[in-house]
Amino acid sequence: MNLPKIASISRKILVACVGLFLLVFLLVHMGINLCLLRPDDGEWYSIACNFMGTNYIIKVFEVVLFAALIAHIIITVALQIQNWKARPVRYHQPSKSKTSAMSKTMIWTGGLVFVFLALHFVNFYFVKLGLVEGKYMIQTEHALSSSELQAKYMAYTQGKLSPEEMATFQTEMEAVQGLMIKAESEGLYSDDMKWIRNLSAEDVKPVEGIVEGIEPDFYNMAFELFGNKVYSVIYLILFVALAFHLIHAMQSAFQTLGLNHNKYNKFIEGFSWVYAIIIALGFAAVPVYIMFFV
């Protein structure tokens, strides 16, 4: 984990820059999360998720974001190892120097945030990548007018289908019809009827490859996850850790980038606190709302 030839300060500056970038991303992410609280049956939230999932600029940024996150982790761990090595024999007495608890526990709060991220990835991001099963949704329009089925239907009416093809076509038709019936009977349509949602992997499986536009249903996944009290409590605890991390992170990044001025130091410190608290409260709002009001 040693990165030779890069001086410690250069590494720290990298960590600070990347950290500030991650801070901005957190704001965006929090904004999207807060869409969950809108009583619009997930309309905004779905639009946001859709945008994040399909926009090409965002896709580029996704790569940058991951690179940043990994760099942040690798460099900080490398720096931390250097720091542990710098004092091979520890003191007997614990330090009584006046310092903030946040500043001394960055590697640990960072570690907790990492645990959270792992959890988060399993629950959401891996679903998107198709590595883990989650909930899915399909645009009603697509389900009703799958271009492939349309084409097969045309061929069928013209009698151009072979007996084998007929058999497949029928199975496919039945699968789609089954989905529609399930949606009708279980009320899986969204308020504006545009989406069939809250589908399980089992539900979607038969129509896979037939119907376009199957997407993960983050909205319902979120509600289901946060409906789990244990998960919510873990989520809240980890966000306290994130807040601790952020309180020090922002002012620390400024210091590392050399932005220290006795006129503005108080402001930067205050801003760090406010920012960290806003982020923590913003993210906590969703599980708290779901736990107590849904």
Partner: peptide
Amino acid sequence: GNCTNTYACEAECPKLIKRSNIARLNREWI
């Protein structure tokens, strides 16, 4: 080791040397 901005150094410096010097060092470095 390297600086993680805990400022224990500033708290214990017998000559009360300020952390702003570390920021200046970082600026100079950049």
